[in-house]
Design a protein around this nucleic acid. Structure first.
Lengths: 128, 128
DNA sequence: TCATTTGTTCGGGATTTGTGAACTATTGAA
DNA sequence: TTCAATAGTTCACAAATCCCGAACAAATGA
């Protein structure tokens, strides 16, 4: 099994970071890992907010987070442990990750309260 | 010709913003508009850093920036004038746009100095 | 009226993405 | 050792998206 590739911190790009976090599943994963004290394995995310994510899809998502420099993954026996590269990223792009995670929190809070008051959920703009 | 759609600020999502800015051409456009004092029309970007961008592609890029809430576009006669929605965005997601633009600046500066010292340019990680 | 300018829409090929199926690697139990 | 279970990866292919030339629409000015 080929080793897990991690880019050097100076090869990490803004576009790569933004792209990786532009997917709802991936921000959710990243936010969760960033929030944890300990490491997290992939299978913790087989369901995200009651939605099942296929294993193969999850694997791709982790690959994208990893290859764009957001997380570090290490094999430990049968599982892979993931941690964020927050500190390195903070050095390279000060304030960026914090701002994104903060925005994400604001948005989830709003989505949650909207749900409670039975208003229709905000619609995501088309990508086309 | 159908009117230009702009989402209400509360319908703007983090994912949408990150997606819109995860493309090098689009950040370049956004950064430029944000840097200008006055409004900018689309055709100003028919070439970006010596690279020609087809008109139809450019139109799509503007549409994506607009429909994800990053810019506001108004028809004025034959042309469309674009401005950022910085202030609204700052209210909704404090610090986000500034952090992204700042990261972008850091990255361009590095790319530029790397070019000067003839080191190979940082490679973008694969999207797959 | 007609040409020019500015931008949009359409159609298609090329590229990316999502996912089931098959696979690899490690662990633990019999 | 052998076998089953667990955790992920890789493959292949359908579906979705992206890019861009060609055709079009709307406003302006000669």
């Amino acid at each position: 099994m080929r080793p897990l590739f991690h880019p050097a911190i100076e090869d990490v790009t803004v576009e790569g970071i933004l792209y990786a976090l532009s997917d709802p599943v991936r921000v959710a994963i990243y936010a969760d890992i960033a929030g944890q004290r300990c490491t997290v394995n992939c299978s913790s995310f087989l369901t995200i907010s009651d939605q099942p994510i296929p294993k193969s899809t999850l694997s791709q998502h982790f690959k994208i987070l990893r290859e764009n420099g957001l997380i570090r993954s290490e094999r430990h026996g049968v599982e892979v442990r993931n941690t964020t590269r927050c500190q390195e990223l903070e050095q390279r792009f000060p304030g960026l990750m914090r701002a994104i995670l903060n925005a994400h929190t604001i948005q989830s809070r709003q989505a949650h309260s909207a749900k409670q008051t039975a208003r229709p959920a905000a619609k995501r703009a088309s990508r086309r």
